[in-house]
Amino acid sequence: MPAKGMLLSSSPHSFTPVSTPRIMLSVLIALVPASAYGVYLYGFSALALILVTMASAAAAEFVFRKLIKASTTVSDFSALVTGLLLALTLPPSTPLWMGALGAVFAIVVAKEFFGGLGANPFNPALIGRAFLLMSFPAAMTTWTLPQGLIVGPDAISSLSLAQGAVDTVTAVTPLGLVKSGKTLADVGTYLGTHSDGELLKQLFLGYHSGSLGESSILLITLGGLFLLGIGVIQWIIPVAVLASTFLFSWVLGMNPVFSLFTGGIAFGAFFMATDYATRPLTPKGQILFGIGIGLITAVIRKFGGFPEGVTYAILIMNIATPFLNKMRVKKYGFVPPVKPAKPSKEAAR
Protein backbone atom coordinates (compact mmCIF):
# COMPACT_ATOMS: atom_id res chain seq x y z
CA MET A 1 0.00 0.00 0.00
CA PRO A 2 1.23 3.48 -0.63
CA ALA A 3 2.95 4.60 2.51
CA LYS A 4 3.25 8.23 1.59
CA GLY A 5 0.35 10.62 1.88
CA MET A 6 -1.90 10.79 -1.14
CA LEU A 7 -3.17 14.15 -2.30
CA LEU A 8 -6.78 14.46 -1.17
CA SER A 9 -8.33 17.45 -2.86
CA SER A 10 -11.88 17.90 -4.02
CA SER A 11 -12.66 17.36 -7.72
CA PRO A 12 -12.01 18.44 -10.41
CA HIS A 13 -8.51 17.01 -10.51
CA SER A 14 -7.74 18.39 -13.97
CA PHE A 15 -6.83 22.01 -14.63
CA THR A 16 -6.62 24.29 -17.61
CA PRO A 17 -3.10 25.30 -18.61
CA VAL A 18 -4.32 28.89 -19.04
CA SER A 19 -3.07 30.94 -16.12
CA THR A 20 -3.33 34.59 -15.17
CA PRO A 21 0.30 35.40 -16.10
CA ARG A 22 -0.24 33.75 -19.47
CA ILE A 23 -3.31 35.90 -20.11
CA MET A 24 -1.49 39.09 -19.11
CA LEU A 25 1.50 38.14 -21.22
CA SER A 26 -0.72 37.70 -24.26
CA VAL A 27 -2.13 41.21 -23.72
CA LEU A 28 1.44 42.55 -23.64
CA ILE A 29 2.16 40.71 -26.88
CA ALA A 30 -0.99 42.09 -28.47
CA LEU A 31 0.22 45.59 -27.65
CA VAL A 32 3.65 45.14 -29.20
CA PRO A 33 2.72 46.32 -32.74
CA ALA A 34 1.03 49.51 -31.53
CA SER A 35 3.89 50.19 -29.10
CA ALA A 36 6.53 49.59 -31.74
CA TYR A 37 4.77 51.94 -34.11
CA GLY A 38 4.69 54.59 -31.38
CA VAL A 39 8.44 54.23 -30.95
CA TYR A 40 8.87 54.40 -34.71
CA LEU A 41 6.84 57.63 -34.84
CA TYR A 42 8.32 59.38 -31.83
CA GLY A 43 11.71 57.83 -31.35
CA PHE A 44 13.72 56.88 -28.32
CA SER A 45 11.87 59.18 -25.93
CA ALA A 46 8.69 57.22 -26.59
CA LEU A 47 10.46 53.97 -25.77
CA ALA A 48 11.79 55.53 -22.58
CA LEU A 49 8.30 56.67 -21.59
CA ILE A 50 6.89 53.17 -22.14
CA LEU A 51 9.63 51.47 -20.15
CA VAL A 52 9.61 53.96 -17.28
CA THR A 53 5.82 53.80 -16.95
CA MET A 54 5.78 50.00 -16.99
CA ALA A 55 8.64 49.74 -14.52
CA SER A 56 7.00 52.27 -12.19
CA ALA A 57 3.75 50.34 -12.24
CA ALA A 58 5.48 47.06 -11.39
CA ALA A 59 7.62 48.71 -8.70
CA ALA A 60 4.61 50.45 -7.17
CA GLU A 61 2.75 47.17 -6.91
CA PHE A 62 5.75 45.37 -5.43
CA VAL A 63 6.47 48.02 -2.83
CA PHE A 64 2.86 48.59 -1.86
CA ARG A 65 2.17 44.90 -1.33
CA LYS A 66 5.38 44.56 0.67
CA LEU A 67 4.27 47.46 2.87
CA ILE A 68 0.85 45.99 3.58
CA LYS A 69 2.50 42.56 3.96
CA ALA A 70 0.44 40.99 1.22
CA SER A 71 1.69 38.33 -1.17
CA THR A 72 3.75 39.57 -4.10
CA THR A 73 1.76 39.64 -7.31
CA VAL A 74 4.18 41.29 -9.71
CA SER A 75 4.81 37.95 -11.37
CA ASP A 76 1.26 37.89 -12.72
CA PHE A 77 2.32 40.71 -15.11
CA SER A 78 -0.93 42.61 -14.57
CA ALA A 79 0.93 45.72 -13.34
CA LEU A 80 3.05 45.70 -16.47
CA VAL A 81 -0.12 45.59 -18.55
CA THR A 82 -1.51 48.58 -16.65
CA GLY A 83 1.76 50.45 -17.12
CA LEU A 84 1.88 49.78 -20.83
CA LEU A 85 -1.77 50.66 -21.35
CA LEU A 86 -1.23 53.93 -19.54
CA ALA A 87 1.93 54.81 -21.49
CA LEU A 88 0.20 54.20 -24.80
CA THR A 89 -2.56 56.68 -23.97
CA LEU A 90 -0.15 59.49 -23.02
CA PRO A 91 1.08 62.23 -25.34
CA PRO A 92 4.52 61.18 -26.63
CA SER A 93 6.14 64.26 -25.09
CA THR A 94 4.96 63.45 -21.56
CA PRO A 95 7.89 63.88 -19.14
CA LEU A 96 9.13 60.56 -17.80
CA TRP A 97 8.46 61.51 -14.19
CA MET A 98 4.87 62.27 -15.09
CA GLY A 99 4.42 58.87 -16.67
CA ALA A 100 5.90 57.31 -13.55
CA LEU A 101 3.59 59.31 -11.30
CA GLY A 102 0.56 58.30 -13.33
CA ALA A 103 1.59 54.65 -13.10
CA VAL A 104 2.02 54.81 -9.33
CA PHE A 105 -1.35 56.48 -8.96
CA ALA A 106 -2.99 53.91 -11.21
CA ILE A 107 -1.56 50.96 -9.30
CA VAL A 108 -1.76 52.20 -5.74
CA VAL A 109 -4.95 54.26 -5.73
CA ALA A 110 -7.00 52.67 -8.49
CA LYS A 111 -5.96 49.06 -8.01
CA GLU A 112 -4.38 48.17 -4.67
CA PHE A 113 -6.54 50.44 -2.49
CA PHE A 114 -9.50 48.40 -3.70
CA GLY A 115 -7.90 45.05 -2.98
CA GLY A 116 -5.71 44.47 -6.00
CA LEU A 117 -6.19 42.40 -9.13
CA GLY A 118 -9.80 41.74 -9.98
CA ALA A 119 -11.26 43.83 -7.18
CA ASN A 120 -10.82 47.32 -8.62
CA PRO A 121 -13.99 49.02 -9.84
CA PHE A 122 -12.27 51.42 -12.25
CA ASN A 123 -9.82 50.73 -15.02
CA PRO A 124 -6.49 51.58 -13.36
CA ALA A 125 -4.72 52.76 -16.52
CA LEU A 126 -7.56 55.15 -17.31
CA ILE A 127 -7.66 56.42 -13.73
CA GLY A 128 -3.92 57.10 -14.08
CA ARG A 129 -4.55 58.96 -17.30
CA ALA A 130 -7.49 60.93 -15.91
CA PHE A 131 -5.41 61.86 -12.88
CA LEU A 132 -2.61 63.24 -15.06
CA LEU A 133 -5.07 65.01 -17.31
CA MET A 134 -6.57 66.83 -14.33
CA SER A 135 -3.25 67.57 -12.65
CA PHE A 136 -1.26 68.58 -15.72
CA PRO A 137 -3.77 69.67 -18.35
CA ALA A 138 -1.15 71.54 -20.38
CA ALA A 139 1.37 68.73 -20.66
CA MET A 140 -1.37 66.22 -21.27
CA THR A 141 -2.71 68.12 -24.25
CA THR A 142 0.57 69.01 -25.88
CA TRP A 143 1.07 66.93 -28.98
CA THR A 144 4.10 66.29 -31.09
CA LEU A 145 4.40 65.66 -34.79
CA PRO A 146 5.53 62.18 -35.73
CA GLN A 147 9.06 62.04 -37.11
CA GLY A 148 9.10 62.85 -40.79
CA LEU A 149 5.65 64.34 -40.92
CA ILE A 150 6.10 67.92 -42.09
CA VAL A 151 3.18 70.24 -41.76
CA GLY A 152 3.79 72.96 -44.22
CA PRO A 153 3.72 76.64 -43.15
CA ASP A 154 1.05 77.03 -45.83
CA ALA A 155 -1.26 74.72 -44.03
CA ILE A 156 -0.57 76.37 -40.74
CA SER A 157 -1.28 79.85 -41.95
CA SER A 158 -4.20 78.90 -44.10
CA LEU A 159 -5.77 77.15 -41.10
CA SER A 160 -4.66 80.06 -38.87
CA LEU A 161 -3.36 77.78 -36.17
CA ALA A 162 -2.00 80.18 -33.64
CA GLN A 163 0.21 77.87 -31.62
CA GLY A 164 1.63 75.93 -34.50
CA ALA A 165 2.63 78.91 -36.59
CA VAL A 166 6.16 79.19 -35.38
CA ASP A 167 6.73 75.74 -33.95
CA THR A 168 6.43 72.90 -36.41
CA VAL A 169 7.09 70.37 -33.64
CA THR A 170 4.08 71.15 -31.51
CA ALA A 171 1.11 69.72 -33.28
CA VAL A 172 -2.64 69.37 -33.25
CA THR A 173 -4.51 66.09 -33.30
CA PRO A 174 -7.18 65.52 -35.94
CA LEU A 175 -9.83 65.46 -33.20
CA GLY A 176 -8.43 68.69 -31.81
CA LEU A 177 -8.73 70.36 -35.20
CA VAL A 178 -12.33 69.30 -35.54
CA LYS A 179 -13.10 70.41 -32.00
CA SER A 180 -11.78 73.89 -32.82
CA GLY A 181 -14.31 74.09 -35.62
CA LYS A 182 -12.26 72.83 -38.54
CA THR A 183 -13.68 70.62 -41.22
CA LEU A 184 -12.49 67.26 -42.43
CA ALA A 185 -11.00 68.96 -45.46
CA ASP A 186 -8.96 71.17 -43.14
CA VAL A 187 -7.62 68.08 -41.40
CA GLY A 188 -6.67 66.79 -44.83
CA THR A 189 -4.86 70.01 -45.60
CA TYR A 190 -3.06 69.83 -42.28
CA LEU A 191 -1.90 66.27 -42.88
CA GLY A 192 -1.11 67.02 -46.51
CA THR A 193 -3.54 64.56 -48.04
CA HIS A 194 -5.45 65.28 -51.19
CA SER A 195 -8.76 63.51 -50.80
CA ASP A 196 -11.10 62.23 -48.09
CA GLY A 197 -10.17 58.68 -48.98
CA GLU A 198 -6.49 59.43 -48.68
CA LEU A 199 -7.08 61.15 -45.36
CA LEU A 200 -9.04 58.25 -43.91
CA LYS A 201 -6.34 55.88 -45.08
CA GLN A 202 -3.68 57.91 -43.35
CA LEU A 203 -5.76 58.06 -40.19
CA PHE A 204 -6.31 54.30 -40.33
CA LEU A 205 -2.62 53.66 -40.69
CA GLY A 206 -1.97 56.12 -37.87
CA TYR A 207 0.45 58.62 -39.41
CA HIS A 208 -0.66 61.66 -37.46
CA SER A 209 -0.31 63.27 -34.05
CA GLY A 210 -1.95 61.67 -31.08
CA SER A 211 -1.29 59.52 -28.02
CA LEU A 212 1.77 57.34 -28.14
CA GLY A 213 0.06 54.13 -29.07
CA GLU A 214 -3.46 55.04 -30.00
CA SER A 215 -3.10 56.34 -33.52
CA SER A 216 -2.73 53.28 -35.72
CA ILE A 217 -6.19 51.77 -36.01
CA LEU A 218 -4.69 49.03 -38.16
CA LEU A 219 -2.16 47.82 -35.59
CA ILE A 220 -4.56 48.18 -32.68
CA THR A 221 -7.15 46.15 -34.52
CA LEU A 222 -4.56 43.51 -35.30
CA GLY A 223 -3.68 43.26 -31.62
CA GLY A 224 -7.35 43.10 -30.73
CA LEU A 225 -8.01 40.37 -33.27
CA PHE A 226 -5.11 38.41 -31.83
CA LEU A 227 -6.68 38.57 -28.37
CA LEU A 228 -10.05 37.61 -29.83
CA GLY A 229 -8.47 34.73 -31.70
CA ILE A 230 -6.82 33.21 -28.65
CA GLY A 231 -9.93 33.76 -26.56
CA VAL A 232 -8.49 36.28 -24.12
CA ILE A 233 -11.21 38.78 -24.97
CA GLN A 234 -14.63 38.27 -26.53
CA TRP A 235 -16.14 40.17 -29.41
CA ILE A 236 -19.23 41.61 -27.72
CA ILE A 237 -17.65 44.65 -26.07
CA PRO A 238 -15.39 45.86 -28.93
CA VAL A 239 -18.18 45.43 -31.45
CA ALA A 240 -20.72 47.17 -29.22
CA VAL A 241 -18.34 50.08 -28.51
CA LEU A 242 -17.36 50.60 -32.15
CA ALA A 243 -20.88 50.17 -33.51
CA SER A 244 -22.37 52.54 -30.99
CA THR A 245 -19.64 55.15 -31.52
CA PHE A 246 -20.31 54.95 -35.26
CA LEU A 247 -24.05 55.23 -34.77
CA PHE A 248 -24.11 58.05 -32.24
CA SER A 249 -21.44 60.09 -34.05
CA TRP A 250 -23.57 59.87 -37.14
CA VAL A 251 -26.73 60.81 -35.24
CA LEU A 252 -24.93 63.80 -33.75
CA GLY A 253 -23.84 64.96 -37.17
CA MET A 254 -20.17 63.89 -37.10
CA ASN A 255 -18.48 61.80 -39.76
CA PRO A 256 -18.87 58.30 -38.31
CA VAL A 257 -15.84 56.78 -40.05
CA PHE A 258 -13.66 59.70 -38.97
CA SER A 259 -14.95 59.12 -35.44
CA LEU A 260 -13.75 55.54 -35.44
CA PHE A 261 -10.39 56.35 -37.01
CA THR A 262 -9.34 59.09 -34.62
CA GLY A 263 -8.65 59.45 -30.94
CA GLY A 264 -8.58 56.53 -28.56
CA ILE A 265 -11.80 54.77 -29.47
CA ALA A 266 -10.28 51.72 -31.16
CA PHE A 267 -7.69 51.37 -28.44
CA GLY A 268 -10.37 51.79 -25.81
CA ALA A 269 -12.70 49.32 -27.48
CA PHE A 270 -10.15 46.51 -27.71
CA PHE A 271 -7.88 47.10 -24.72
CA MET A 272 -9.58 49.31 -22.13
CA ALA A 273 -13.27 48.44 -22.24
CA THR A 274 -12.39 44.74 -22.24
CA ASP A 275 -10.47 44.99 -18.95
CA TYR A 276 -11.65 41.95 -16.99
CA ALA A 277 -12.17 43.51 -13.59
CA THR A 278 -14.07 46.58 -14.69
CA ARG A 279 -16.33 45.36 -17.47
CA PRO A 280 -19.57 43.47 -16.82
CA LEU A 281 -19.38 39.69 -16.93
CA THR A 282 -22.79 38.97 -18.41
CA PRO A 283 -23.35 39.17 -22.18
CA LYS A 284 -26.39 41.42 -21.92
CA GLY A 285 -24.53 43.68 -19.50
CA GLN A 286 -21.60 43.82 -21.92
CA ILE A 287 -23.79 44.95 -24.80
CA LEU A 288 -25.23 47.83 -22.78
CA PHE A 289 -21.76 48.64 -21.44
CA GLY A 290 -20.41 48.96 -24.98
CA ILE A 291 -23.35 50.99 -26.18
CA GLY A 292 -22.96 53.34 -23.20
CA ILE A 293 -19.29 53.91 -23.96
CA GLY A 294 -20.00 54.78 -27.59
CA LEU A 295 -22.80 57.12 -26.64
CA ILE A 296 -20.83 58.99 -23.97
CA THR A 297 -17.78 59.24 -26.24
CA ALA A 298 -19.83 60.78 -29.03
CA VAL A 299 -21.56 63.17 -26.67
CA ILE A 300 -18.28 64.35 -25.10
CA ARG A 301 -16.63 64.77 -28.50
CA LYS A 302 -19.60 66.80 -29.72
CA PHE A 303 -20.45 68.89 -26.67
CA GLY A 304 -17.65 68.43 -24.10
CA GLY A 305 -14.76 70.70 -23.25
CA PHE A 306 -12.15 68.21 -24.44
CA PRO A 307 -11.81 66.94 -27.99
CA GLU A 308 -11.66 63.34 -26.76
CA GLY A 309 -13.96 61.51 -24.35
CA VAL A 310 -13.11 57.81 -24.44
CA THR A 311 -11.34 57.84 -21.07
CA TYR A 312 -14.29 59.32 -19.25
CA ALA A 313 -16.81 57.29 -21.21
CA ILE A 314 -15.21 54.05 -20.06
CA LEU A 315 -14.74 55.23 -16.48
CA ILE A 316 -18.37 56.32 -16.29
CA MET A 317 -19.55 52.97 -17.61
CA ASN A 318 -17.27 51.24 -15.09
CA ILE A 319 -19.59 52.66 -12.45
CA ALA A 320 -22.50 50.86 -14.07
CA THR A 321 -20.74 47.49 -14.14
CA PRO A 322 -22.13 46.10 -10.86
CA PHE A 323 -25.63 46.90 -12.02
CA LEU A 324 -25.07 45.51 -15.49
CA ASN A 325 -23.87 42.28 -13.84
CA LYS A 326 -27.38 41.78 -12.59
CA MET A 327 -28.51 41.20 -16.18
CA ARG A 328 -27.68 37.52 -16.17
CA VAL A 329 -28.64 35.12 -18.91
CA LYS A 330 -31.45 32.80 -18.00
CA LYS A 331 -30.06 29.68 -16.39
CA TYR A 332 -30.45 26.27 -18.00
CA GLY A 333 -34.00 25.03 -17.62
CA PHE A 334 -35.25 28.38 -16.32
CA VAL A 335 -38.87 28.23 -15.29
CA PRO A 336 -40.55 31.60 -14.84
CA PRO A 337 -41.79 31.84 -11.26
CA VAL A 338 -45.51 31.43 -11.00
CA LYS A 339 -47.02 34.58 -9.60
CA PRO A 340 -48.50 33.64 -6.25
CA ALA A 341 -52.25 33.79 -6.56
CA LYS A 342 -53.90 36.26 -4.25
CA PRO A 343 -54.42 34.41 -1.00
CA SER A 344 -58.05 33.58 -0.75
CA LYS A 345 -59.78 33.74 2.61
CA GLU A 346 -59.81 29.96 2.57
CA ALA A 347 -56.04 29.82 2.40
CA ALA A 348 -55.56 32.55 4.94
CA ARG A 349 -57.32 30.54 7.58
Binding site: M6, L7, F15, T20, L117, G118, Y276, L281
Partner: peptide, 13 residues
Protein backbone atom coordinates in the same frame (compact mmCIF):
# COMPACT_ATOMS: atom_id res chain seq x y z
CA UNK B 1 -1.69 15.07 -9.03
CA UNK B 2 -1.81 18.82 -8.90
CA UNK B 3 -3.06 21.08 -6.29
CA UNK B 4 -3.16 24.82 -6.72
CA UNK B 5 -3.71 27.48 -4.16
CA UNK B 6 -6.62 29.69 -4.95
CA UNK B 7 -5.78 33.09 -6.36
CA UNK B 8 -8.12 36.03 -6.59
CA UNK B 9 -10.81 36.03 -9.26
CA UNK B 10 -9.64 38.18 -12.16
CA UNK B 11 -13.21 38.26 -13.47
CA UNK B 12 -12.14 36.88 -16.80
CA UNK B 13 -15.54 35.30 -17.42
Amino acid sequence: AKHYDEETCIRCG
